[in-house]
Design a binder for these strands. Structure first.
Lengths: 339, 339
DNA sequence: GACCGTTCCGGAAGCGCTTACAGTGGCCCC
DNA sequence: GGGGCCACTGTAAGCGCTTCCGGAACGGTC
């Protein structure tokens, strides 16, 4: 007792102190098999005295599992990703798994990082445009259950997404209802599968209604500053669009700021819409499309858990509904449709 | 080649295939010792053929380290925590560590979860009011380097916080400058060390200026809805305060909504301030105190890394500066002080 | 009293790596 | 031509657990 031992006690020391075998200590601790009450008591006492905590590595190695799973996402910045990750962590932890996170954004060689992550977990979810499909397939082939989130299906993997398609169509219909005909799309459809879908549906909806979609999107990153710069360019240019459809709320928020700077009134001079329905959208009066972020994360965690438990059920694909949230930035409305 | 083996190949199979010992395979792979070029080539070829990936558990057990560290926070919801976590993940990953996250919010028995996390990492940071000091001390005693973030120092642990004190004082001074004398504080100082400090400094600043601080805070959770409800109660009650100082931006955002509902104009009828400077604050014209969230996380990760590397340097304590961001919600200003 | 089932426990074999230690040749040098 | 060094490789001892297998003790049954 005298000198505190810095080293963690091992199961051997506990066994020795009690005068039993390590097998008995293990059994007493996990309650997996018969152990005499008195023996168990003495084991627990020794555990207490020695401050023994079983090594997670030893356990995992012996059990052949990590009791952990991971989530890969492009970036945690922005409310969207963090909400999804939170939803994920919440149920993963509930199901007894530790969660490892990996943000690939801007990192060199994300593939290596993802493969590395795959070696420390029993399962993982890959979100959005993080690594190439080939890498995902490679991970899945190593036997690590994988579920895809907000990204196009790859092979026979469970995939969960939000309904970008209907969301975009409803948004376009609403805007057309306001009478707008000249549109611009802000954001880069190539950097996120979700946005690819949204942009595609946006164009399709316009075409279906007999209107010509813009020639090309105004490419910009998905943050406020990039949206701000892109919007300035578009709004200051010739033949100003009547409506700016933005890839996400951050871009739209930047666009709102740009419009204000240019002395333009929203929605009178230009309508602006976002996507995600982040908190700021509400205060900016931004019309947007709501995504069930927590639920996306939670569902992914649950599905992954099923697969890790060995489920051989048919591949699951689900598209969670989105909801058009009409606020003031898209045009005049008689009554507040949403708050 | 014929049938894909579901099982991961082990180092033994690689060794057998090449006709060398596992030691040689290990050496060839990690490059830690002499291996004949030709041998290495053959090893790498076998690795490729068998799709061998070393087991992280085997490695960790042998090396005696996890190559991972963890962060514990109360909740990821809200932009504040997610930004800190992102800043943390960014540098931790850069330094070669996987990141485990654990949100304690609302979970039963957070202590057990934290202790469990401690067993799977080489070091961890504990943020805010998550577990009792005793648990933190216990973790630290097991030899897992620990750094504290946005929480009062415990024992000889590195601790990093934001400057709540000066922030709150500057805020109060500014509000007094507007002529306000009747204040209310929204938020529960007992649920976050940061807020405890802010509230304390808020009262002290008022007292120092010869004014009487409010008798007690208006306790509410740190989200928009709670802020909204609390503000409604306060604003609709008798002797309406002239200024609502809120524990964080979310509460303040809720308060803004409440004021609007009650037909009160901000800041004419009531001034409202927040804390954190989240994105929405900008669009809501909210006067607030900016915190360097990314930097908090990044610094914690760096310090933790030093400790994990065995640094025995003196205990580090740092208080990162905060910045008063004046917008429209606190009163009339001749020119925009901040955007 | 032989037999059997139950309870309890120890021995030992893994799990998949890393690395200390001990060679074994080959080559160079005096 | 013997000694020494260097490049390279194998042996084996861990790392700290879990769990299979089998043995011992004990009580109850026919």
């Amino acid at each position: 007792m005298a000198v505190q031992d810095r080293r963690q006690a091992t199961i051997y020391e506990v066994a020795q102190r009690v005068g039993v075998s390590i097998a008995t200590v293990s059994r007493a601790l996990r309650g997996t098999d018969y152990v005499a009450p008195e023996t168990r008591r003495r084991v627990l006492a020794a555990v207490e005295e020695l401050q023994f905590r079983p090594s997670r590595l030893g356990q995992s190695l012996a059990e052949g599992r990590h009791a952990a799973n991971g989530i890969v996402f492009p970036d945690l910045s922005g409310p969207y990703y963090s909400e999804v990750v939170l939803g994920y962590e919440e149920v993963a932890a509930e199901l007894g798994n530790s969660v490892l996170i990996l943000a690939t954004h801007g990192r060199p060689d994300p593939a290596r990082k993802v493969l590395e992550l795959a070696r420390r977990v029993d399962g993982m979810v890959v979100m959005g445009r993080t690594v190439a499909d080939g890498i995902v397939a490679q991970v899945a082939e190593t036997g690590v259950p994988t579920v895809l989130l907000a990204r196009a299906a790859v092979g026979a993997l469970d995939t969960i997404t939000a309904d970008n398609d209907s969301g975009a169509r409803r948004l376009v219909e609403h805007l057309l209802g306001h009478g707008y005909r000249r549109f611009a799309y802000l954001g880069d459809p190539d950097t996120s599968p979700d946005v690819t879908d949204r942009y595609g549906a946006f164009r399709a909806a316009l075409a279906d209604a007999g209107h010509t979609p813009p020639r090309a999107p105004v490419r910009c990153a998905f943050d406020v500053d990039a949206g701000h710069r892109a919007a300035r360019r578009v709004l200051a240019g010739p033949s100003r669009p009547q409506a700016l459809v933005c890839a996400n709320d951050e871009v739209a928020l930047g666009a709102l700021a740009a419009a204000a700077e240019l002395g333009l009134t929203v929605p009178t001079d230009v309508a602006i819409t976002g996507w995600d329905d982040v908190m700021a959208a509400r205060y900016a009066g931004l019309t947007t499309v709501h995504q069930p972020m927590r639920k996306l994360g939670a569902t992914a965690a649950r599905w992954l858990h099923d697969r890790m438990a060995g489920s051989q059920d048919a591949v699951r694909r689900e598209v969670l509904p989105t909801r058009l949230v009409v606020r003031s930035s898209c045009g005049p409305h008689s009554a507040e449709t949403e708050v």
